[in-house]
């Protein structure tokens, strides 16, 4: 007696789900507005880029749009590994710029890139300390002094892997108070005064120069992160994507990147 209506409900549910799914599929079909006729560079370029590129790529995007009227660059910033996972799960993007070759490799290994990724900048680690350097940190060795609290990135993320390489090279056994999930989180611990130092990229220190100072150290030369960029295989707007990649490699874009603290590859 109580079974029957539930059975009916299930049938109805199945019907509703089918309808709902069909509706979703329908609205998901691309409007095909991006690729207009001819070989002209136009339409929207979707760029997935490492979070550390935020400031410079915003500028480069504006410059690109000015150089190619009719184009629009949309950025999706995030941790490189997150972006790579999104792309490998089928997220519609045209260009991918990663903060490490290893992360880029997960995308190219999955067959989602076109051609060989181009390295467009390098980024080096520095020691970020609160403004004025209250603990007088001048080298990696100073980080293991008693009473110095240090934040590192976890080794799973690019900045953590680079930090480990640098510390190993310097033969410094450092126990941080925390292993942050990304470089901006490590930097914010310095800004808030919760730690006395953190190993972050030079570009991060430059972007936060009002609150933190950067201390360069020689061992960072052995732990430089290269940033590769690639046009994706399933790029909805491949023409504009190629143009954007070429623009990132141009001298004009390079000037923007160097001003942000990146190094030429």
């Amino acid at each position: 007696m109580r079974r029957r209506p539930f059975g009916t409900a299930l049938a109805g549910l199945a019907a509703a789900m089918t309808l709902a799914l069909a509706a979703c599929g329908g609205s998901d079909t691309p409007a095909a507005s991006s690729s207009s006729a001819g070989s002209g560079v136009t339409g929207t370029v979707n760029v997935s880029a490492a979070a550390s590129l935020t400031e410079s790529f915003n500028q480069i995007g504006k410059d690109f749009e000015a150089a190619y009227p009719g184009t629009k660059v949309v950025f999706n910033y995030g941790g490189s590994s997150t972006l790579a996972a999104q792309i490998n799960q089928g997220a519609p993007a045209d260009v991918f710029a990663a903060a490490s070759p290893a992360t880029m490799k997960t995308v190219t290994d999955a067959g989602n890139g076109t051609g060989t990724p181009a390295t467009f900048v390098k980024n080096q680690l520095v020691i970020a300390v609160p403004k004025g350097n209250p603990k007088g940190v001048t080298s990696l060795g100073d980080l293991v002094k008693p009473g110095v609290k240090v934040a590192l990135c976890a080794v799973e993320v690019p900045c953590g892997a680079a930090a480990k390489k640098a510390l190993d090279a310097a033969n410094v056994k450092l126990t941080p108070v925390t292993q942050e999930t990304d470089v901006k989180a490590a930097l914010s611990k310095v800004k808030l005064g919760e730690v006395d130092a953190a190993l972050v990229y030079r570009t991060d220190v430059k972007a936060a120069s009002a609150d933190v100072d950067g201390v360069e150290f020689p061992e960072s030369a052995g732990a430089v992160n290269a940033y590769p960029i690639v046009v994706l295989k399933n790029a909805p707007n491949a023409t504009a994507a190629q143009a954007f990649l070429a623009y990132v490699l141009s001298d004009k874009a390079k000037a923007v990147l160097l001003a942000a603290g990146f190094q030429a590859p």
Binding site: G79, S81, T82, A85, A151, A154, E156, V157, P176, V177, T178, Q179, E180, T181, A185, K189
Partner: peptide, 24 residues
């Protein structure tokens, strides 16, 4: 993760471990 940070055995709870494992 914001207040206590992430250090295995001391402040790395399961959700934090999951998030980091997701990286690679």
């Amino acid at each position: 993760i914001t207040f206590a940070g992430n250090f295995p055995g001391r402040t790395q709870t399961m959700p934090l471990a999951v998030y980091l494992a997701l990286e690679n």
